[in-house]
């Protein structure tokens, strides 16, 4: 095992972990608070990726890092908009019926993916990344592609921001308490639904942004991007423990780094399979996940 490879794989793994975290954290908290499993979360992620692609392709903004920033902002906004439409327009009508809500989001996921595919095709669309992203930086003697560092940096900032939001803001505290003991929070007469809408919008926004980062990470976007990553997000959620933000972050790291290393050194697809194996072992040893709060 060459040291160069180890460090660059580690940073790739951290980047992938960031993407998993952005997708999984919203999903996990939304489920933890209101028992809504938003299967359209992956489709929002894909929409974010496409918005990012379109912004990088067509926005007449210079220099290119500013265009990239605009792409991130637009994708976040698109995700948040979709989130508010889905929550206020559709899910709210099925309040208290988690299965119906989940199935509705499943229908949305099918429709949104088909829409993207029908409009823009199912072939991968390459992202026009800022030129600097493709260059390499030498870290501890090993060459690391800059885009990986950008992804790690953005994900880290967003993780810290989410932690601060949950620990410091009024809505964040309600969300945390609600995930731990929803009936208690409701019994206290606290209006959870407002905080839930906010959480849904933030989660969807993060997913939209995550879609752009995934486009950068993989080099391109496809309509199926969301569904593919959703599966790993699920693994991350279970390994980390449902409803625990810190657990999700920790599990994202473990799953993504493991996946990167095994994919690199093992036969094709082995890394993806190993994550499933990790999940199975986790269930046997510790079914509620690393830092689980909600009894699974």
């Amino acid at each position: 095992m060459a040291m160069n490879d180890v460090i660059s794989l580690l940073i790739s793994g951290l980047g992938l972990a960031g993407i998993y975290f952005l997708l999984a954290s919203g999903l996990s908290l939304i489920y933890g608070l209101m028992r809504v499993l938003n299967l359209a979360h992956g489709a929002i992620f894909a929409v974010g990726g496409f918005v990012g692609w379109a912004a990088l392709e067509y926005l007449p903004v210079e220099p290119d890092w500013l265009r990239f920033t605009a792409a991130l902002v637009l994708a976040t906004l698109a995700g948040a908009m979709l989130g508010i439409l889905i929550e206020k327009g559709l899910l709210a009508r099925l309040y208290g019926r988690p299965y119906a809500q989940m199935l509705l989001t499943l229908g949305l996921a099918f429709a949104m993916t088909a829409f993207l595919g029908g409009w823009l095709g199912h072939d991968p669309l390459t992202l026009k990344q800022p030129a600097w992203f493709d260059e390499v930086t030498v870290i501890a003697g090993s060459r690391v592609v800059n885009s990986r560092l950008v992804i790690v940096g953005i994900a880290l900032i967003l993780f810290l921001a989410t932690v601060v939001f949950l620990r410091r803001s009024k809505h964040g505290l309600i969300i945390r308490a609600g995930v731990n003991n929803r009936s208690m929070v409701m019994a206290l007469g606290i209006n959870v639904s407002k905080s839930f809408t906010l959480l849904f919008v933030i989660g969807s926004g993060l997913a939209g942004l995550g879609g752009v980062l995934a486009g950068v990470f993989f080099g391109s976007v496809t309509p199926e991007l969301g569904t593919q990553q959703l599966i790993f997000a699920f693994i991350v959620i279970i390994v980390g423990g449902l409803g625990s933000l810190e657990g999700t972050a920790l599990a994202a790291l473990v799953v993504a780094v493991l996946q990167q290393f095994v994919n690199y050194y093992g036969p094709p697809g082995a890394g993806d399979l190993v994550t499933v194996l990790l999940l199975a072992v986790m269930l046997l040893v510790r079914p509620r996940g690393l830092l689980g709060k909600v009894a699974a």
Partner: peptide, 22 residues
Amino acid sequence: GPLQEPPLYIGLAVVLMMLFAP
């Protein structure tokens, strides 16, 4: 384009079903 994608119809049918005939 989307009108030629079968999953679009399936997806929309599920959404409508959940809203009006769960």
